[in-house]
Design a protein around this nucleic acid. Structure first.
Length: 237
DNA sequence: GCGACAG
DNA sequence: ATCTTGTCGC
């Protein structure tokens, strides 16, 4: 895949916020009627000291969810974990893994929030803008917004509001299991995001592509750590 | 001002 | 996110 919006990686928080607000201007929330055949999912894993980040980018067919292509990338972590600025910590590795994909998916599911973010531009939105491709944010915890209580039954959901705006939803993917927070990232809307996530559930809390991408990132991490045990990992630019 | 705070 | 085994519950 090819980046559509290149930029420097900020070192200071205020610079990151400036870039995030600029990207937020480009976020498109609109109905998506495209036929979805290929779905990509990205996720990351960290080394023990949280100094190295490992990212996976995997493409699956939909609705079969058969693996089509799988790429990875690891890098030194250079930005501190800061709620609201996750993109600046994980973005370098995630974008690099996605750039290695030879196939272009119809949409990308990201482990993190889309517009359910204080600046309406979470990790999923930032990734979507970077490649100008439809993205969906899927998070296990809420960072911004509120919603009414949802029942314990699978399928129960409530809209997620942030400053009077509906930005996504809380969705129960399994009975008696904590809900998932879904929000559009870029070039799609809440309805599309919800439908896609629901149609990709296969009995677990997380949609299958993301669940697999998560496992893939961890396997990749173990592989690299084993390969370089006792040695100093050399990371090229 | 205080609390909350994706991975 | 990561450090970690068993264990309670559907």
């Amino acid at each position: 895949m090819e980046l559509r919006n290149e930029h420097q990686w900020p070192v200071e928080k205020f610079e990151a916020i400036e870039l995030q607000k600029e990207f937020a201007q480009h976020v498109q929330i609109l109905p998506n009627f495209d036929d979805v055949t290929l779905i990509a999912a990205v996720d990351t894993a960290y080394g023990r000291n949280a100094d190295i980040i490992y990212a996976s980018a995997v493409i699956y067919t939909f609705p079969e969810i058969d693996e089509v292509e799988k790429r990875f990338h690891y890098a030194e972590v250079k930005f501190p974990y800061t709620p609201g600025l996750l993109y600046f910590r994980e973005g370098p590795a995630i974008l690099a893994a996605l750039e290695k994909l030879e196939t272009t998916p119809d949409l990308i599911i990201v482990n993190g929030h889309g517009i359910a973010d204080y600046n309406r531009c979470g990790l999923a939105s930032m990734v979507g803008i970077a490649f100008d491709i439809p993205t969906i944010g899927c998070a296990r915890k809420l960072i911004a917004g509120n919603h009414r209580e949802i029942t314990p039954q699978k399928g129960s959901s409530q809209p997620l509001f942030l400053k009077d705006r509906e930005v996504g939803l809380a969705y129960r993917t399994k009975d008696n299991v904590k809900p998932l927070f879904i929000s559009p990232g870029h070039r799609c809307d809440i309805k599309f995001a919800k439908e896609m996530v629901v149609q990709n559930l296969r009995g677990y809390r997380m949609p299958e592509p993301l669940r697999f991408a998560h496992q893939a990132a961890n396997k990749y991490k173990r592989h690299i750590e084993k390969k370089y045990q006792n040695k100093t990992i050399y990371i090229k630019e």
